[in-house]
């Protein structure tokens, strides 16, 4: 297994895409840390993975807090060893356009989606640099290209793309790659709450005519975490069924 004994921290891994990434890594032999703001959800997700025979630990973290991030990495190092792979997946989406979004909503989105990437990446990089190896995978979104009603979310995810490129340039010489995943429509509990007519409209706009599974993103994360991608860094890979090529807006 190509991630054998690697220590992988996945933030926001209590459910959805983060959980799928953690499962994929565990299947590939990694020791996974389910880091989530909801401690009970992290514990239960880790237990699910541990039940398959893999090593998995659930730990609470608020990625927007320097103190909480420092504590997370210290606990991981103590329990499993230094972090080899970091997946910055934790994020929120507040879908409001320019007329409605409040200062607090804007700030909260940037704090979690972008500042969280900075805090976790800096902490991980400080540990990876002396070991001259590591993988950082940031989860952005196809929405960073811009979309209706997603001003704060898109801006934060654009920041993640930019941070990925700067981190990749700075850390390349240490053998640390930094890449970015930009999921499009993915079948998560949040998406399933959409009404039927909305789902049909979303599907119509999909070039491949399908909606992706969290495991599709998990597999792409696995590639970026594996030795096979050692010469690939600073990239943004859209896992979106082609929607990044052209996102057809609704007419009328």
């Amino acid at each position: 297994m190509d991630l054998d004994a690697q220590v992988a921290v996945v933030t926001g891994a209590g459910s959805g895409i983060g959980l799928a990434v953690a499962r994929e890594f565990a299947t590939a032999g990694a020791k996974v840390v389910i880091a989530d703001i909801d401690a009970e959800r992290a514990r239960m997700a880790a237990q699910q993975i541990a039940d398959t025979g893999a090593t998995a630990v659930g730990l609470p973290v608020d990625v927007a807090s320097r103190e909480a991030v420092t504590k997370l990495f210290a606990t991981v190092e103590e329990q499993l060893g230094p972090v080899d792979i970091l997946v910055n997946n934790a994020g929120i989406s507040i879908d409001r356009g320019v007329r409605g979004i409040t200062d607090e909503e804007w700030k909260r989105t940037q704090d979690i989606n972008l500042n969280g990437v900075f805090l976790c990446s800096q902490t991980a990089a400080r540990s990876m640099i002396p070991r001259r190896s590591g993988r950082i995978i940031n989860v952005s979104s196809r929405a960073w290209l811009g979309w209706f009603g997603q001003l704060s979310y898109a801006a934060s995810k654009g920041g993640v793309v930019s941070a990925t490129r700067s981190l990749a340039i700075e850390l390349a010489k240490y053998g640390i790659t930094v890449n970015c995943l930009a999921p499009g429509l993915i079948d998560t509990p949040l998406l399933r709450r959409e009404p039927q007519e909305v789902m049909e409209r979303l599907l119509t706009a999909q070039p491949m005519g399908t909606i992706g599974a969290p495991a599709d993103v998990g597999w792409a994360a696995h590639y970026f975490a594996s030795p096979a991608s050692r010469s690939v860094t600073g990239q943004v890979l859209y896992v979106c069924g082609g929607k990044s090529l052209y996102a057809q807006p609704a007419r009328g």
């Binding site: 390349a172 599709d216 792409a220 896992v239 069924g241 082609g242």
Partner: peptide
């Protein structure tokens, strides 16, 4: 190795992408 990633059966939701295999 990069070609093999795109060829994999599990890469079916990835299309129209350009991955630079260039060490940055």
């Amino acid at each position: 190795d990069t070609v093999a990633f795109f060829l994999d059966a599990r890469s079916g939701y990835v299309t129209g992408q350009v991955l630079y295999c260039c060490g940055g």
